[in-house]
Design a protein around this nucleic acid. Sequence first.
DNA 1: TTCACACTGTGAAAACTGTCACAACTATTA
DNA 2: TAATAGTTGTGACAGTTTTCACAGTGTGAA
Lengths: 213, 213
Amino acid sequence: MPQVSERTIGRLSLYRRLLDEMRAGGVMYAYSHQLAAMAAVSAAQVRRDLMVIGYSGSPSRGYDVWQLSQSIGVFLDAPVKQGIALAGLGNLGRAILSYFTGRRPNLAIVASFDNDARKVNRFIHGCPCYPSDQMGRIVEEMGIQTAIIAVPAGSAQAVADQLVRAGVKSMVNFAPTPLRVPPHVYVEETDITTTLEKVAYFARSGRLMEDSK
Amino acid sequence: MPQVSERTIGRLSLYRRLLDEMRAGGVMYAYSHQLAAMAAVSAAQVRRDLMVIGYSGSPSRGYDVWQLSQSIGVFLDAPVKQGIALAGLGNLGRAILSYFTGRRPNLAIVASFDNDARKVNRFIHGCPCYPSDQMGRIVEEMGIQTAIIAVPAGSAQAVADQLVRAGVKSMVNFAPTPLRVPPHVYVEETDITTTLEKVAYFARSGRLMEDSK
DNA sequence: TTCACACTGTGAAAACTGTCACAACTATTA
DNA sequence: TAATAGTTGTGACAGTTTTCACAGTGTGAA
Ligand SMILES: NC(=O)c1ccc[n+]([C@@H]2O[C@H](COP(=O)([O-])OP(=O)(O)OC[C@H]3O[C@@H](n4cnc5c(N)ncnc54)[C@H](O)[C@@H]3O)[C@@H](O)[C@H]2O)c1
Ligand SMILES: NC(=O)c1ccc[n+]([C@@H]2O[C@H](COP(=O)([O-])OP(=O)(O)OC[C@H]3O[C@@H](n4cnc5c(N)ncnc54)[C@H](O)[C@@H]3O)[C@@H](O)[C@H]2O)c1
């Protein structure tokens, strides 16, 4: 098993979206340096990343935009439709739902959960919202393996524990609390406070990086 | 100049928040392994990170929770109050504003911008919202150096360009488009689509990592 | 046909990041 | 006082990620 790096997976997802945008604009072929410019990475990085999916471009025309996008899909996408659960339908949860709905064909938020009686038992942006005390059962029944956590910090760990018990294998956590999970579960932390402090720091101690060419 | 790594800065911010939570709970001292458990990193990582701020713990009591938090502050925080601009007051923008308001003492969102006439010229969560055609002028006048981009993907690059022209040195970008910026500007990309695809990928190709002890 | 060109794929090197392991230290106990 | 136990700070090491640089290749021009 090749074990592709986390960073590479993220960039492949980005490359595919850029390729799809190009295709929508009528572009047929792209060189690594063009893709690189759009993704704000180096051309060598693009070529190195593409090695893992086993698709070769032509030295003269570059990559076939459509074929490359398809090849990335074969590598990245689930063979069958993959449902995602969303815990917490507050401001952030609804923002995610409204943005993500209908975005990718076989990756969709298929169930959401909240403990606020007013939000529960109806459809929001086309997604059913269930009471959170049924979360374990529903996630298990639907075979959901991926979840988004958008509940307040105080509830995040408890919600994560429930989800893991229900069979979830990976999560993205928006609450500002690092989650403790068993080794087989993958968690991506998205902590806005930490991010803002970091960014504010680099506004002062100006950093030589992120080249634009 | 030591040039501290991006990752370390992010973790220092996290450590401080955890320390402050401990202090609020009446805890006076903490060992590296305790901090590590809460941050979901290794104890060695914590000690290595703390090297850059030049605060020493005691081998017997560990770190003084209050003093360590202060020392991180001296290292991380701006000497004077640092304002942040927020571009785009849609679902996401408001979620960020409502969550972040009043969170950290000298790091606050002091101006927001939108091009929707209905949202403009009033206070939202205590933050003034201006029309976006005045963004450049106001950001420049207020000396704002850090910005959050929460506008639709199509406008993100144009907004970023304006902000950079007005003197912004670092940004966090929530729009799903990598920003092209000059080398002296630091950008943190937060792309929910890419993140979700990555997380969904690792739900299948289960990964041995993120140890919980 | 042959050449020049600009690109791809990739081994090797470099740069960066995290872990290991241990000397040095301090409080406690006998 | 001396021995013990458990922690810190850090040099050395290991692992990971990115960049470099170049051989190999398809295309178009002469
Ligand atoms: N990373 C980011 O970009 C970002 C931005 C804003 C907010 N946040 C974080 O996201 C989380 C949600 O933020 P928000 O602004 O939407 O807050 P919010 O208060 O508007 O929403 C929280 C929602 O979770 C529900 N909830 C509470 N406990 C629950 C439980 N145990 N099970 C199910 N649902 C529960 C509440 O009913 C509410 O609807 C917070 O932790 C916040 O810190 C992150
Ligand atoms: N990373 C994440 O977690 C995440 C989650 C949801 C959405 N998003 C992204 O964040 C962005 C905003 O999402 P949203 O759900 O809030 O969308 P939205 O449509 O609700 O909000 C966009 C806001 O930007 C304003 N706007 C548009 N053009 C502008 C301009 N040129 N200058 C100033 N304001 C302008 C609009 O008036 C609107 O208020 C989108 O790019 C979306 O993809 C990111």
